[in-house]
Structure formats: C-alpha cells, structure tokens
C-alpha cells in the first residue's frame, strides 16, 4: 500500500468536497447554527449575551444530532456510487493503484473535510464565547463534545461509504442515506420508546438496545461528559451509570469505534470484490 497514492487521492477528494455545493451548504449551516445556539443557550438561562462553554455544549448536542449525521451520510453515500455512475471509478481503477488505496484515499479525504468543517463551526463558536467571557465556565466539556462529534461524524461517514459500496447510483445512495438518517434521528427514539412500552422491556435491555444507534450513544456520552450523570435520560440512564460506573465512558467510546470500523470494513470488502464496474 502506498501512502503517497492515498494522499494524492485524498487531496482530490478534498478538492471535490469544496466544489460540492451540499457540503459547503451544510458547513455554512453548521457554523451559523452553532453560533446561534451558543447565543441562545444563555438567553435560555435568562441572561442576554453569549453562554458559557458547558451550557453551549449541552445545547449544541441537538444541533450535532441533526446536522452532522446528515452531512456525513450524504457525502459518504456519494463517494463511490457517484464515481461509478459517472464512469470515472473504472478509469481510476485502471491506473497503477490498488482498491485499498482508492478506498483509503477517498475515506481520508472526506474525513479531513468533515473534521475541518466541524472544527470551523465549533472553533468560531468557541472563539466568540471565549471573547465574551464564556471561558470562565467549563471549556473542557466543550472540547469533549467536539471530540465526540468527530467520532459521530466518522460513524456516519462509514455508514455512508457502506451504502455507497452497495449501490451503483448516487441518487439511490443518497436516498438510502437520508432514510437511514431519518431512522437514526427520529425513528430510533420513537422505536426505542415504543419497543420498551409494547414489550415491557427491562431497563437493562432497553439500554443495550439503545447502543445499537450511534446517535443515542453519542447523546448519552455527551450528556455524561457535561452532567457526569445520566439522570436526565430516566431509568435507563440511571441503570447504565449504576451498572457500568466509570467504565461507561469507555463503553460508549468502544461502541462508537465499532460503528466507525465495522461499516468501513464491510464497505471496503464489498468494494474490493466488485466486478460490475
């Protein structure tokens, strides 16, 4: 495997992302809303002006849950399927490159774009808060939220790549990506509540089921970082903290890591064995 080749393909991917109007739009929306949320967080506390880092981090969780998965899923879903649809993938693979290099280059390029976009959003909001005295509160919780958002974005990027490796058309891939986003964001919560009520699910099983949704894991991990407790999530949250204690943080990290690695690995295996180019 040639690192040089991976980097050349990654640079091309970053160039393409900057020309992708959807990606640019998501980035602008994320930066704008992050700023707005940081302002409104303090307004919610009855004081006008900018909120501290801890409160802003809490309010940003909902923004992240909505925008970041959408952003990562759609750019991931377009990656391989878009190139295949335009016929450029076969030409690229006819060059002296391996499929692993092409896959890794594309993933690395989009990952760096995503992280740059998120860093821009969190960075501007953070700088504005620091300039308005928000630094007096807890900046570490804000940094942890940024770190966990990075992980969440990569889980969704991997899921997007898996969709892309399983489809031939960008339109179909984006459609599946949007459905998955809807399922994770809305149906996930409703499904969990409905299943718990209908099946009279024990609280332990409900917690384990919630780990199947990376957005839920991100939400619980973020609340834990800000609150040091999951009381806000009800009995399942209290159970999780009692059952797993200090290792809960590592459990969330492991689940997010699994959600990054497993779909990406399946996507690569599918891509490596494709012969319908």
């Amino acid at each position: 495997m040639s690192i040089r080749t991976i980097w050349i393909i990654a640079q091309k991917e970053m160039r393409d992302a900057l020309h992708n109007r959807w990606f640019v739009l998501y980035t602008i929306a994320f930066v704008g809303l992050a700023l707005a949320f940081s302002y409104m967080a303090l307004a919610g506390a009855g004081i006008s002006g900018f909120a501290g880092f801890g409160r802003t981090a809490a309010s940003l969780i909902n923004l992240v849950l909505l925008i970041v998965p959408l952003m990562a899923l759609t750019i991931g879903a377009q990656s391989l399927a878009g190139e295949q649809e335009h016929g450029t993938l076969a030409y690229l693979l006819a060059q002296p490159v391996t499929r692993l290099e092409v896959f890794a280059g594309k993933y690395l390029g989009l990952m760096l774009c995503l992280l740059a976009s998120l860093t821009l959003g969190f960075g501007i909001a953070g700088l504005v808060m620091a300039a308005n005295g928000g630094g007096a509160s807890n900046p570490l919780s804000y940094v942890r939220l940024v770190w966990q958002t990075f992980l969440l974005s990569l889980t969704m990027l991997s899921a997007g790549f898996l969709i892309s490796a399983l489809t031939k058309r960008a339109g179909v891939a984006i459609g599946i990506g949007l459905f998955l986003w809807l399922a994770f964001v809305f149906l996930g919560d409703l499904g969990l509540m409905g299943t718990a009520i209908a099946m009279r699910m024990p609280v332990g099983e409900l917690f384990l089921l919630s780990l199947s949704n990376p957005l839920q894991v991100f939400k619980m991990a973020s609340i834990l970082e800000i609150n040091t407790s999951l009381d806000i999530l009800g009995p399942a949250g209290i159970y999780a903290l009692q059952e797993y204690g200090r290792s809960l943080r590592w459990l969330f990290l492991a689940v997010l890591a699994l959600w990054i690695v497993a779909p990406a690995a399946f996507a690569y295996l599918r891509f490596a064995n494709r012969s319908d180019l």
Binding site: S2, H19, H86, G87, T88, A90, Y91, A94, Q95, P96, V97, T98
Partner: peptide, 21 residues
C-alpha cells in the same frame, strides 16, 4: 500484482469518463 501490471499499461477507454469539472 495488479498495481505493477497496470503500471505497464496506458489505457484509452471507449467512453470518455473523466472528471469533467
């Protein structure tokens, strides 16, 4: 040895499938 084999080849495709932008 796909990479080395393709390193020996220059390919002219039937359809002009390049990055148009």
């Amino acid at each position: 040895q796909g990479r080395q084999a393709r390193g020996q080849i220059g390919y002219v495709p039937q359809a002009q499938s390049f990055y148009n932008d």
